[in-house]
Design a protein around this nucleic acid. Sequence first.
DNA 1: GTTGTTGCAAATTGTTTGCACTGGT
DNA 2: ACCAGTGCAAACAATTTGCAACAAC
Lengths: 154, 154
Amino acid sequence: MTRISSVTAADPGDVVAEITAALHARGERMTTPRRTVVEVLARKPGHLTAEQVVAVTASPVHRASVYRTLDALCDLGVVQHIHVGHGATAYHLVDPSGPHPHGQCRHCGHIYDLPRRILDAATRRLHRDIGFRLDAHHVALSGVCASCATTDID
Amino acid sequence: MTRISSVTAADPGDVVAEITAALHARGERMTTPRRTVVEVLARKPGHLTAEQVVAVTASPVHRASVYRTLDALCDLGVVQHIHVGHGATAYHLVDPSGPHPHGQCRHCGHIYDLPRRILDAATRRLHRDIGFRLDAHHVALSGVCASCATTDID
DNA sequence: GTTGTTGCAAATTGTTTGCACTGGT
DNA sequence: ACCAGTGCAAACAATTTGCAACAAC
């Protein structure tokens, strides 16, 4: 079974095949730059900014194309983008079990995957109390991670 | 009793006096541009971007000075800044009862004050489970507000 | 009279867009 | 061959910075 994960590196070949099919189903195309970007996302675990993708592509892909590709992949639903408080938007392949919340350490800047249901109670309460439908995985929560907590003086 | 609130407009005179004292206690100065910015924040309820502050100042204050002033006021602890997923950082005077979480409607863009304890459970669990110390009021959560929920097709 | 602050202009960072051209299908 | 997608350059938005002049204390 194909595993697409932000944490474990996925098989780039599988991911490319899968996404190619999804693109074709929409009348869109799998191009060399797009393949290159997908391969980067599949190989690199974790959360990458557009600029980081540009930096690590083997064959050069233009900045603008990387942005447009990531956009297209988000529309397709195969990539998740996360706004981080300070700094650039981060992207990663969506986990097979769907998107999950994120937290950024304000000390080291690292982005962590958070437990999928961590905001369930808040989501329910917000909806019930003020009708706000929380989108738990669109922005990275801010905080200080375990490894920085000991060092942090703020 | 002085009331500094993001929702209710506060008495600009009171707020200026209070903040002047806080600045002096640190060897910093209350200048005309700073007073102007503080008065805007005190008069305008809600959440303003630096650009919006620039736009509404009676006597003109330079962009850069507005940014630096807001920064200084955040350092002082009298202003709270909120990163919003898409768009500029928002600022407001801190509530007397302290900072609170925020949510931005991805449909209309409006920023809402959320109940102060809405993320308490998540905060506790994150700390206990993975040692992540959540800063619940530093970023605006994303979602769809009640009034947009009926219209939203996404 | 110090020295913290300001205004200005210019640099930075992240991202988008118009357009002629190219490469998938 | 058609047209989605590319590269490029330029625009854009939000923010920061170096520096000389200025104004609080």
